[in-house]
Simulated assay, not measured.
Amino acid sequence: MTDLSALIRLCPPPPTQPDPVDWDRVETELGLRLPEDYKRLASTYGPGRFGDYIGIHHPHGVTRYSNLTGPMPARIREYLQRDYDQGTYPVPYNPQHLFALGSTDNGEYLFWITEPEDSPDAWRIAVNEARGPQWFTYDGTLTAFLISVLTGTTDVPQFPDGLLNQPVGFTPSVPPPFEVADPPVRPPVDTEDIRNWARANGFQVPPRGRIPREVREAWEQAHPV
């Protein structure tokens, strides 16, 4: 069984076939070839989120910051480069070899480690800590990473303990009713600061694990970049 077949059994794709992707155009626009497993995954599922937590960037992303060819990968790389140059956080790879391919509800980013650049099927996956210095590296493809995380085989320290407490699946992205501006790249913030702010403002938050999306959005609105 291929990794994609295993992922389909675990997380069935939408019943409606996604719009086809012009991969030649996408790769020309990005200036690099993409892993074949990603192209098969994106062509099968379309834009959306896995496990109600992991969003994968897609050439047909419904907003500019969830679009694989949008501005966010470059902006995130610039932020990491600044960290790397200043020694603010120990970025374990040259930021020029990190390409942001997705994000989570808690604000972590998923990256391809684009080494060697001319062998995309050998690229590994890295995950940063949303509001801290920790990094995690997975020695395999994006599809294999999703299977491993969503079956509980791989434990990513940055991900919440209760990630698999609910059934896993795939949720297609829905276009917003209005144009969404590119979000700023927010500097790291300790999750305990968010929890303390939430409790002081009447929100119920668990002592550990995933911060509810409505709490995180309220905190971001109260603390603009």
Rank of each mutant, 00 (worst) to 15 (best):
N106Y: 03
N106M: 14
R40A: 15
D85W: 11
P59C: 09
I147D: 02
L80G: 03
F145C: 14
A130V: 08
H97A: 12
R40F: 02
P14Y: 06
V149S: 03
Y38S: 08
D105F: 02
Y138L: 12
T28V: 11
D85V: 13
F145K: 05
D52Y: 07
D105T: 11
P12M: 06
G55D: 01
R82D: 13
H60M: 03
I54F: 02
M72A: 10
F50T: 11
L10E: 00
D52H: 04
E78F: 00
G87E: 09
Q17T: 15
P95Q: 07
P12V: 09
T88I: 14
T88N: 10
S148P: 12
A122P: 03
P20D: 04
E78K: 12
D121K: 05
V62C: 10
P20M: 04
Y45T: 12
F99M: 14
Y138A: 11
D85Q: 14
R75T: 09
V62K: 11
L68V: 14
L98Y: 00
L110M: 15
P20Q: 07
R77W: 00
Y89P: 01
R124F: 07
L146H: 00
I113S: 01
P35C: 02
V26S: 05
R9M: 12
L41T: 10
S148T: 12
I56D: 04
R25Y: 08
S148I: 02
M72W: 03
D139S: 08
L41V: 11
P13L: 02
D85S: 08
G48V: 07
P18H: 05
G48L: 10
V91A: 03
F50H: 04
G51D: 01
L80D: 03
Q17W: 04
Y45R: 07
I76F: 02
A130Y: 05
I147K: 01
L80Q: 06
R124A: 10
P133K: 11
F145N: 03
G46E: 09
E129S: 15
W23R: 12
W112E: 01
V91I: 15
P14D: 05
I56A: 06
R124I: 05
Y89D: 04
A130F: 12
R49H: 06
G51A: 04
D85M: 07
D139M: 03
A130W: 05
Y65F: 14
T44V: 15
K39A: 07
E36N: 06
T88Y: 13
F99R: 02
A130T: 05
T114Y: 02
G46K: 06
E36H: 10
L110T: 06
R75G: 03
W23I: 13
